[in-house]
Design a protein around this nucleic acid. Structure first.
Lengths: 217, 217
DNA sequence: CTGGATCCTCAACGATACTG
DNA sequence: CAGTATCGTTGAGGATCCAG
């Protein structure tokens, strides 16, 4: 449990000490979407060894970024959630996610999409767009997330929306669509994206959740 | 040289694969201040093993974040610099640095400050402030960086400024001053900060390079 | 069942010596 | 100056086991 430090009085070095461990950023990505139990995290992070997850959660707790709440009563499951300090990581995680997404094209062999990673990706790409107002359910490669947009505020969460105005079912090319590399008509014609609901809302969706345009699309 | 991936089609996961290795963020911090030779990097990252530095530079080169320029002619030194893609990390690194700095108080035993870490910290905390116009040299714990502010633009680099309007010599409590935890008069009275030049500029400096105010100062 | 702890193996890191 | 080589130590990966 020793702390590997960098020996520099520097904000970035301190951040790297807390966040630079393997799996830590992905754990926080999932917890920033919402509280989760140990088994939720395990399921959302395929391949993480159980001892690493438990070690990371302890370290994050020590660093004041994550807290655990033991449910009393019949449901004795433990719930992990970010602290106030942890919540301040939202803009940081989102900036990292946008940077990584800018150079991400086709999925590599065996790569998966989880509900929370999809929700996180939507939040990272959301930008306030005046008067738009709609509820979306987005399904990509077996994962689902939803977003509600109203009065310039965007709320995102994992799973389906109860009353979506538009259901978007897509494959990984959804990313290229949001980056502006494919137009709304072409992306539907190719079968990469299909919608259930008012097709005009798809343009509004692309306008609200726009990814930065990378030079080599 | 094996690539440890996370198996998720997710921008954050991709970013973590490139940036999540030990020392990588600090190497990029230094290179974002400006190009550097191998030995410059070694000097600015006390404690980094030489093989780790060389491995990281190769990985970053493969990932298209860093490029090396071999000087021809008499000076055969190799210079590393960020690519365009690497330069897009500026807002990411700055967001991480601000988050880390918000919870950073007294330096720990043996922690140092380097020219480039100081320059990077200044850039991370810089905010555009209308009409201000001044050149600063900042010295902290043996390190020096400088900034020039004009027309809402802030340029930061390592080392001393050739023609500073104000020289600020401080210890690590400079951070608390910039976070607003100590006022300009108190911080000078305590000896934490001393200035050479127009003392009124110190307030302007604190206004331009303000750190986010953390709850538990 | 959930929420971990333990054990073993192997890859990555750290320290230092050495070379074109 | 700009790295490579070597070797001991630490941490991650994977499977299994255990307690409430």
């Amino acid at each position: 449990m020793r702390k590997r430090d960098y020996g520099q009085f520097c904000g970035l070095a301190r951040a790297a000490e807390t966040l630079g461990q393997r799996w830590t950023l992905l754990i926080l990505r999932d917890l920033l979407v919402g509280p989760a139990r140990y088994s939720d995290l395990l399921r959302g992070l395929p391949g993480i060894p159980t001892n690493v997850l438990s070690t990371r959660l302890k370290e994050l707790e020590e660093d004041g970024v994550v807290a655990r709440t033991a449910q009393s009563g019949k449901d004795r499951s433990v719930v992990y959630h970010v602290t106030e300090r942890g919540a301040e990581l939202s803009p940081v995680i989102d900036a990292l996610a946008r940077w990584g997404a800018a150079d991400m094209h086709a999925p590599r062999e065996g790569e998966t999409v989880t509900d929370r990673s999809l929700a996180s990706a939507l939040r990272a790409s959301a930008r306030s767009t005046g008067s738009a107002r709609a509820n979306y359910t987005v399904r990509v490669a077996g994962a689902a997330a939803h977003a509600s947009v109203h009065d310039g505020v965007v709320d995102v969460d994992a799973g389906e929306h109860a009353h979506p105005d538009l259901i978007i079912t897509a494959d990984s090319r959804l990313r290229d669509f949001l980056a502006g590399a494919i137009g709304p008509d072409d992306v539907q014609a190719s079968g990469a994206v299909s919608v259930d609901g008012d097709p005009a809302l798809l343009r509004e969706f692309a306008d609200t959740f726009a990814l930065p345009y990378s030079t080599d699309e």
